[in-house]
Design a protein around this nucleic acid. Sequence first.
DNA 1: TGTTTAAATTATTATATGTCAATATTGACA
DNA 2: TGTCAATATTGACATATAATAATTTAAACA
Lengths: 204, 204
Amino acid sequence: MLSKQMISMDAREILAQYLQNYVDLNEDESNQFVSCFEEIKVKKRQFIVQPNFIAHHVHFIVKGAFRSYVVTDEGNDHTTSFAIENWWITDYNSFIYQQPATSFVIALEDSVILRVHYENQKELKQANHKFETFFRIIAERGLAFFQRRITNNITLSAERRYDQFMSKYSHIAQRLPQYALASFLGMTPEFLSKIRNNKVQKKS
Amino acid sequence: MLSKQMISMDAREILAQYLQNYVDLNEDESNQFVSCFEEIKVKKRQFIVQPNFIAHHVHFIVKGAFRSYVVTDEGNDHTTSFAIENWWITDYNSFIYQQPATSFVIALEDSVILRVHYENQKELKQANHKFETFFRIIAERGLAFFQRRITNNITLSAERRYDQFMSKYSHIAQRLPQYALASFLGMTPEFLSKIRNNKVQKKS
DNA sequence: TGTTTAAATTATTATATGTCAATATTGACA
DNA sequence: TGTCAATATTGACATATAATAATTTAAACA
C-alpha cells in the first residue's frame, strides 16, 4: 500500500477533483478555475473571518477543520456552522453583500485552505457558464442544508438534536471540542455533558 | 391618480420586471424566461407542497402570502418560512434533490403564483448563462437569509426574536395569523400572546 | 345574519434547559 | 516532563418557556 506521502495530492488537484463531481471541465478550464485560488496554511486557533471586517474570501478546506460562531452582547458564543475537508466556509452574509461580518471563523486544527477573493470569484462566474453553474449548485446545496438545520433546531428537543447530529456527523463530532458542538446544537456545554452522561448510564 | 385596475400588470410582466433587478435581459430572453412559468391561482388554505410528495416546482409569488411548515410526530406545527409578493417558496431540500418533501406550503390568502417545473428550470439554467446567474443569485441570497435566521434563533431569547422580527418584518406580521408567527419564532402561541401583552402593559 | 369553526387570550401548573460554582480532566507548550 | 490554561464534569438551584384547560374574540360560510 502506498504511503500517505506518496499519494498526497497538491491542494489544487484536490479542488479540481472535487469540481468534477459537479461540472464537466476540460483541462484548460479546470486550470483556469483553480488558479484563481490561493493556498493558505492556517494554524489552530487562527481566524480567517472576523466581525466588523468584510469577508473577502470563500474558503475551500483542503485539510483541517473550522468553526464559525457569533458572540452575543452577554459574551456567549454560538456556533453557526462547521466545515471539514471538501466543505466551504465563510460569513455568507458578509461575503455576498460585501458588508462587515458578524461572525468569527476559526481553525479548530492546523489546516490548509484554498481561498478565492470576491472579485476573482465574480470574474470566474462571468468567464464561463460552467463555473457559474458550479457556484449555483454549491449555493443551492447550502440553502437546502440550512433549511434542514432550521427545521431541526425549531422542531427537536436538545437531546434529539444531539442524537440526530451524532447519527449523521459523528465523524465530525470527534474532531470538535464539546463546547463547540453544544453551542452548535443550541445548548450549554453543561447540558450536553449531562445528555451524554445519561446515555452512558442507560447503556450499562 | 390611476386606479389599481388600470395599472395592474400581467403576472409575467411582474416577473420580468423583477428579473431586471438581477440580470440584464433583452426582450427575447425575458420572454423565453417567463414563458417557462405557469400562472396558477391558489385559494386560501390550499397546499402547493405536501410531505411525501416531491416538490416539482419553485413558486414565485405575484400576489398573496404563503407559509411553509413541518408537523412533528407529536402533532406540533413549526413554521420554517414565509413568503409574500416577489419572494420564492418551495421545499428546497425536496426540489433540489427531487426527493419527497417533509414540509407543507400553504396559502395564507387567495394568491396568484408563477411556478416553474424542475425540468424547465434545469433547461433555463442550461440555455442561457444569464438565467443561470439569476438562479445562482437567488440561491445565494436565500443562503445568506437562512444563515441570519439560524443565528437569530440560536442567539436570542423568545422576546428578542419577536422584537427583531417586528422591527424588520412588521408589514408581514400583519398578514399572518399569530400562531404562524409564533411557530416561526420558535415559541407557543400562548407565549407570544404573553409577550405582546407585556409590551402593551409597559407602554401604558 | 346567525351559527359554526378557528384563533387569541388568560391563568395555573409543569418541565426542559440554563446558571453558577466547585472539581476533575485533558491538552499545550516552555 | 511538569506546569498552566483550556475544557469537561457534576450537583444544587433558578427560570424561561411549554402544556393544559377554560374563556373570549374573531373569522368563515351557508
